[in-house]
Amino acid sequence: MTITQLKYVLAVAEHKNFTLAAEKCFVTQPTLSMQIQKIEEELSIQIFDRTKKPIQLTDIGQKIVTQAKNIVNEADRIQDIVEQQKGFIGGEFRLGIIPTIMPTLLPMFLNNFIKKYPKVKLIIEELNTEEIVTKLKNGHLDAAIAATPLMEDKIKEIVLYFEPFVAYIPEGHKNHEKHEIEVSDLNLDDILLLQDGHCFRDGIMNLCKNYSKSEINHFQIESGSFETLIKLADEGLGITLLPYLHTLDLKDKDKLKLKHFKEPKPAREISIIYPKNELKIQIIDALRNTISGVIRGAIAFQNVEIISPLNKK
């Protein structure tokens, strides 16, 4: 059997469809089917149950796919070893970033990175944490930037910085006149939240987990953007919490509505995460060093309490 054949097996296992798998592998469907059939004949087993829709792995097929992933990863490592030995930092690199980090962090480091490492072709995707973890495990991302800790066995995390939560409290609200606020000042029913699926939302829910909700809910609004939440807060519909870097771009009049928490400040931990096989580690290190260099001047908080990004329903 060949590495190419194993890649075809992995594609079908992922997409559960021979035609779609062939498209993703840039070969014709008959070619892909023939190569997989050759492996099955060589091993005298069936990897896929073709009678089911969508196509399913057989019991032995599941074990083969697990081993095939290891083999393909180790084969990719050979080229990686050569590039590291030569000191080469280049090639295609697929990076995922969660939506609450992308708009603020990406403009801070991207220009510096592409100037310093012109041979790297960055392919950047905005994805939620669940999508990032899935794509990292399936080999469709080389690394990602996300809120941690995620406690995923096959994923390694290196902390880049700590980013405090900051409250946006408009005039007229009972907490507006306070110089600093405490978590106990928060009322979950009073907080305008991002829509479900954002780990920053889950962080807020975890932050407020010990404080009961009121019995009366006049309305519930969830949005996909901080800008919308800020506008709703200005209309007197509540307050919202923002990540620190997002507050740096606010207008001066809006910055007057920001209230920082007393120390230790509740914060999220932002890390670069990647599979433990550490492929393309030289590019991962280059990214980490570039981001650390630009973030050091913008954010430097140490006395913080890390709030988990995991959904704890």
Rank of each mutant, 00 (worst) to 15 (best):
V304A: 09
I273E: 03
I78Q: 15
T134P: 01
S214D: 13
E23R: 13
F165T: 04
H15A: 00
Q56P: 11
Y161D: 04
L110Y: 15
I270Q: 05
I45W: 13
R288L: 04
E131G: 08
H198C: 02
E126A: 11
T104E: 13
T240K: 04
K156R: 15
D285A: 07
V9L: 12
L248S: 06
L256T: 15
F48V: 05
K312W: 03
T4V: 09
I281D: 04
C199K: 02
E182S: 13
E41Q: 14
G293L: 05
K7L: 05
I124M: 13
I64G: 05
T31L: 12
M1K: 00
T290S: 11
Q56E: 15
K174T: 13
Y117G: 06
S44W: 05
K115A: 14
M205P: 03
P170S: 06
D234K: 13
I39P: 03
E263T: 14
A286F: 06
K38Q: 14
P309R: 01
M151W: 12
H260I: 07
F109G: 00
R94F: 13
D249Q: 11
I295S: 10
T51V: 08
F26S: 08
A143P: 10
L57C: 10
S33L: 06
P266R: 13
T134A: 09
D76L: 14
E305V: 11
G91H: 08
H246N: 08
P243M: 01
L105Y: 04
S184C: 04
P266W: 13
I270K: 04
D254Y: 09
T148W: 05
P149M: 06
L160A: 01
Q84F: 07
H260R: 11
H176G: 00
P309N: 03
V82A: 09
P170L: 12
S292I: 04
H173M: 08
P149K: 10
T2H: 05
H179S: 12
I124C: 03
V120F: 08
L193P: 02
